[in-house]
């Protein structure tokens, strides 16, 4: 049995990282992610890890890159506005194949925006973490327990695939206090053949993303890795989908709300199910493949103008059966409104 705590999502992320074996945390304050850094400043020394507050997100992520190059297990926490600044270095790390964990607690809206729950960073983290067309794994926890589980796991994923990994959630999920259980033991760390470690007498190594003489071969190696990630990292939860006529699709906090909606809809006799992507990159297309050509309707719910809905449409084959519910920005989707949309879709069915 592990250890139970009633704890905020952001603090759970930090505590899970410490327990997973995080050795360096580099940080610049930004709401609504700052509790991660504050918790690390107070607790990371417990396991001998180093905490540093940088002069900017740009410096924080490059400090992380420097630490990661030595083979140290490193992490940063930020929000979308900071993630934008980090994107350049995330691209370098993806190119240099250096593992690290980045927690992005989303802010609402473009620019300075605001702090309400939102999912506007979906495209940014899954499609556009900087220049050059790399793909990095992205976990989308829906509650504090999943933050714990996925932060813990992400260090292993980062090292296994030699890549930066993102854990993405909204401001509410970071603020909600819930009861969580921490897994026992660290994430296992295997020796590697690439890092600038302290092994005496070994030959010099180079950690780089630059290929002045042509990038062809390196690109093919990266593409093979992305294929491997697509094969092994498609993760999703299915709930009441067996006989469903309408399937809700939502990630993160929307996913947990949709689960309650499914229960309420079933009480009314509506055959509704849920597919909740747990990893949003690589997108779990597998979950949708079997519905191609069927009459099952899909209703994607997002707290944004609509970003993941395009991946759903691609996975299921876009047709009259794919629908999108765009929640108004600045609040969580109201269950009653989703239920109304479901009743409407059911009506269109008959």
């Amino acid at each position: 049995m592990g250890d139970f705590k009633f704890i905020k999502g952001n603090e759970a992320a930090a505590e899970a990282a410490i327990r997973a074996g995080c050795e360096g945390f580099f940080f610049y304050p930004v709401t609504p992610s700052s509790e991660i850094g504050e918790y690390m400043a107070n607790h990371l020394h417990r396991t001998g890890g180093v905490f540093a507050q940088a002069e900017s997100e740009i410096a924080a992520v490059n400090m992380m890159f420097g630490g990661a190059a030595t083979g140290a297990r490193v992490m940063t926490g930020t929000s979308g506005v900071g993630y934008s600044l980090m994107s350049e270095c995330i691209s370098y790390m993806a190119g240099a194949e250096v593992p690290a964990v980045i927690v992005d607690v989303m802010r609402a809206g473009p620019g300075l925006g605001s702090l309400e729950p939102t999912q506007g960073d979906y495209n940014q983290v899954t499609k556009a973490s900087g220049h050059g067309g790399h793909i990095i794994p992205v976990y989308a926890p829906s509650n504090a327990q999943e933050i714990v589980n996925f932060v813990h796991e992400s260090f292993g994923t980062a090292e296994r695939f030699r890549t930066p990994v993102v854990v993405l959630y909204d401001g509410y999920t970071g603020q909600v206090m819930e009861s969580v259980e921490f897994p026992e033991g660290r994430q296992e760390k295997k020796p590697n053949t690439w890092s600038l470690d302290d092994a005496p007498g070994r030959k010099g190594r180079v950690v780089r993303s630059g290929y002045a003489g042509g990038i062809g071969q390196h690109s093919f190696e990266l593409y093979a890795k992305y294929d491997d990630m697509k094969e092994k990292l498609q993760r999703f939860e299915e709930y009441q989908t067996e006989d469903a006529e309408i399937i809700l699709v939502g990630f993160g906090i929307v996913g947990r709300i949709c689960k309650s909606v499914v229960d309420k809809a079933r009480d009314e006799g509506l055959k509704v199910g849920l597919i909740r992507p747990i990893m949003i990159s690589p997108f779990p297309a597998k979950a949708f493949a079997k519905y191609k050509g069927t009459k099952v309707k899909f209703l994607t719910i997002e707290m944004s103008y609509g970003q993941m809905c395009h991946d759903v449409a691609l996975a299921v084959g876009e047709n009259d059966n794919t629908h999108f519910f765009r929640d108004k920005c600045g609040s969580l989707p109201a269950m009653s409104e989703i239920l109304n949309r479901l009743r409407q879709l059911k009506g269109e069915n008959s």
């Binding site: 009633f6 709401t31 609504p32 702090l115 509410y172 603020q175 909600v176 206090m177 819930e178 009861s179």
Partner: peptide, 14 residues
């Protein structure tokens, strides 16, 4: 939670 239930606590923030 101590009595075996689930609970969430969310502050208004920002």
């Amino acid at each position: 939670v101590k009595a075996g239930n689930k609970a969430t606590w969310l502050p208004a923030y920002g």
